[in-house]
Amino acid sequence: MASPREAIRERGWTIEHVPHEVISKYNACYRVEVDGELIYPPAADDLGIPENEVWISEKWSKYDRFVLYHELREIAHRAEGHDKTTAHELAERDELSLWRNNPRWRVMNAEWDEGRAHLPFPHE
């Protein structure tokens, strides 16, 4: 499997690291074309994200691998027809399945301002 960064580039999308103050309400967001369909959450309009860009807060750039994977999975679930909330939850499920025992992913979740504390950790 290609790294999330490589997968994004292979699709012709770009990754932009933006100041945290600009995207702090969302942390990461996207507006991308998949099979001729433009996929994006309402936050992309709030932020003014151009087509085929994935934005991530500079604050989280040290965790690009995890954040970009989440965005890719969320985009894939949206392309399958899921709404924004369901796609986000499914992307979190995918992360948990892949990285539940990854210490760096767990540190990222512990550092996250809000919204990820609900992710369960086995044996805790």
Score class of each variant (00 low, 15 high):
residue 33 E to S: 13
residue 13 W to E: 05
residue 101 N to Q: 12
residue 103 P to D: 09
residue 36 G to C: 12
residue 13 W to C: 05
residue 100 R to D: 06
residue 27 N to Q: 13
residue 65 R to I: 03
residue 81 G to I: 02
residue 78 R to G: 06
residue 50 P to Y: 04
residue 73 R to W: 09
residue 100 R to W: 12
residue 24 S to C: 10
residue 58 E to A: 07
residue 62 K to L: 10
residue 70 H to G: 02
residue 110 A to S: 15
residue 48 G to R: 08
residue 69 Y to H: 11
residue 85 T to S: 07
residue 55 W to T: 03
residue 82 H to P: 01
residue 47 L to E: 11
residue 74 E to V: 01
residue 79 A to Y: 00
residue 14 T to P: 10
residue 83 D to N: 14
residue 102 N to D: 15
residue 92 E to T: 01
residue 16 E to Y: 06
residue 96 L to Y: 13
residue 8 I to T: 05
residue 58 E to R: 12
residue 49 I to Q: 05
residue 88 H to R: 01
residue 85 T to D: 07
residue 109 N to M: 14
residue 99 W to M: 01
residue 55 W to D: 06
residue 30 Y to L: 02
residue 33 E to P: 13
residue 96 L to W: 14
residue 40 Y to W: 14
residue 63 Y to F: 14
residue 55 W to E: 06
residue 23 I to T: 07
residue 62 K to G: 09
residue 91 A to R: 00
residue 14 T to K: 14
residue 50 P to H: 04
residue 41 P to N: 01
residue 100 R to Y: 09
residue 115 G to I: 04
residue 109 N to C: 15
residue 19 P to K: 01
residue 100 R to L: 04
residue 67 V to Y: 00
residue 52 N to F: 13
residue 107 V to Q: 15
residue 76 A to T: 05
residue 88 H to L: 00
residue 60 W to P: 06
residue 96 L to C: 08
residue 34 V to G: 09
residue 48 G to I: 04
residue 85 T to H: 05
residue 49 I to Y: 11
residue 88 H to I: 00
residue 20 H to C: 02
residue 33 E to N: 13
residue 7 A to V: 02
residue 100 R to S: 07
residue 18 V to Y: 04
residue 62 K to C: 08
residue 103 P to Y: 02
residue 65 R to S: 08
residue 16 E to Q: 14
residue 41 P to A: 02
residue 64 D to P: 03
residue 116 R to Y: 07
residue 110 A to T: 13
residue 91 A to I: 00
residue 15 I to L: 08
residue 56 I to M: 08
residue 36 G to K: 07
residue 115 G to A: 07
residue 89 E to M: 08
residue 68 L to A: 04
residue 104 R to S: 10
residue 97 S to H: 12
residue 26 Y to T: 09
residue 120 P to R: 15
residue 118 H to F: 13
residue 79 A to I: 00
residue 18 V to R: 10
residue 20 H to D: 11
residue 9 R to I: 15
residue 119 L to P: 05
residue 95 E to W: 09
residue 81 G to H: 03
residue 9 R to Q: 15
residue 54 V to R: 01
residue 119 L to V: 13
residue 96 L to T: 10
residue 28 A to P: 11
residue 26 Y to E: 10
residue 109 N to E: 15
residue 115 G to R: 05
residue 80 E to T: 05
residue 47 L to R: 12
residue 97 S to C: 11
residue 34 V to S: 07
residue 49 I to R: 04
residue 50 P to R: 01
residue 62 K to F: 10
residue 40 Y to R: 04
residue 86 T to S: 03
residue 17 H to L: 06
residue 30 Y to Q: 03
residue 97 S to G: 12
residue 102 N to E: 15
residue 62 K to R: 13
residue 102 N to I: 07
residue 44 A to V: 06
residue 74 E to P: 07
residue 111 E to L: 12
residue 54 V to A: 02
residue 116 R to L: 12
residue 80 E to A: 15
residue 40 Y to I: 00
residue 115 G to K: 06
residue 99 W to V: 00
residue 122 P to G: 09
residue 118 H to D: 14
residue 43 A to V: 07
residue 45 D to P: 06
residue 107 V to N: 09
residue 32 V to H: 01
residue 9 R to S: 15
residue 100 R to V: 00
residue 53 E to F: 14
residue 116 R to M: 10
residue 64 D to E: 15
residue 59 K to Q: 12
